[in-house]
């Protein structure tokens, strides 16, 4: 079976600095894959390269057997890859509802959108309560929920989440984790980029470890959980 997403030998420069070297990875249908690594290891850049926000100097990516490298970012979204960037890129001056509506921009069938909105509101009642407030007035956790809800409205096959646990309280981190599991159960594959390796490895099926722009280790989440190097470097011994 060909994987849902296959990425081969991504190499990316920022100016003259090489930030990714030959990173390869794949994601199968209905899989949760995590990319862990320290700050500056290239995790965010990997996601940005896949979603088309950052251009590559070499490498290829295929999504459902379509080559996506070289496509503009808005077209990659239309193919079914949603990207929830680092730092919960919600549109602070717009209302919660407007944020969600923008997520559903690609779809015109009002009934289905309404159904999806209901499902999101059922899952995150706080968003319904605050739908007319500006998104900037939400708490960090609520903003993360909004960002995830907005990505779901794109109707993706794959969601890439960049540090969804960043800056959240432990309780909210657990909540985000459960949400990710639930989305995945609905049949959507997930790439989870995390500094919180413990949370990521608990959720994921498989994992990649990035160090200074190179993929140094890969395996199933349980294998990596037991790996001495991972334990020492990312799980606090």
């Amino acid at each position: 079976m060909t994987p849902l997403l296959e990425v081969r030998n991504l190499t990316v420069y920022y100016g003259k600095t090489k930030v990714l070297t030959d990173v390869s990875l794949h994601v199968d249908e209905k899989e949760i894959v995590t990319i862990i690594g320290a700050n500056g290891a290239g995790k965010t850049t990997t996601l940005r390269a896949i979603s088309g926000l950052k251009s590559l100097s070499s490498g290829e990516a295929y999504f459902r057997n379509n080559k996506i490298t070289g496509l503009p970012a808005y077209k990659i979204v239309r193919l079914g890859i949603s990207h929830v960037p680092e730092g919960r890129k919600i549109l602070a001056p717009l209302s919660v509802m407007e944020n969600l509506e923008l997520g559903a921009y690609l779809w015109k069938d009002k009934k289905e959108i309404a159904g999806q909105l209901d499902a999101i509101f059922e899952h995150f009642p706080i968003l319904k309560e605050r739908r007319n407030q500006t998104a900037g007035s939400l708490s960090g956790g609520e903003q993360q929920m909004l960002a995830i809800g907005r990505a779901l409205l794109n109707r993706p096959k794959l969601i890439m989440m960049d540090e969804p646990s960043m800056g959240l309280s432990p309780i909210m981190v657990g909540e985000v984790g459960r949400t990710i599991k639930e989305i995945n159960r609905g049949g959507i594959s997930i790439i989870l980029v995390e500094q919180n390796a413990r949370m990521a490895l608990n959720l994921a099926d498989r994992a990649y470890v990035l160090e200074t722009g190179k993929c140094v280790l890969e395996g199933t989440a349980s294998e990596l959980h037991e790996d001495e190097r991972v334990k020492n470097a990312y799980l606090g011994g």
Binding site: K89, L94, L102, L106
Partner: peptide
């Protein structure tokens, strides 16, 4: 309004 705040977020909604 969205694009003046964050063009990237607009791109990621699938908008050219």
């Amino acid at each position: 309004r969205a694009i003046s705040y964050d063009p990237e977020a607009v791109t990621l909604a699938g908008i050219n």
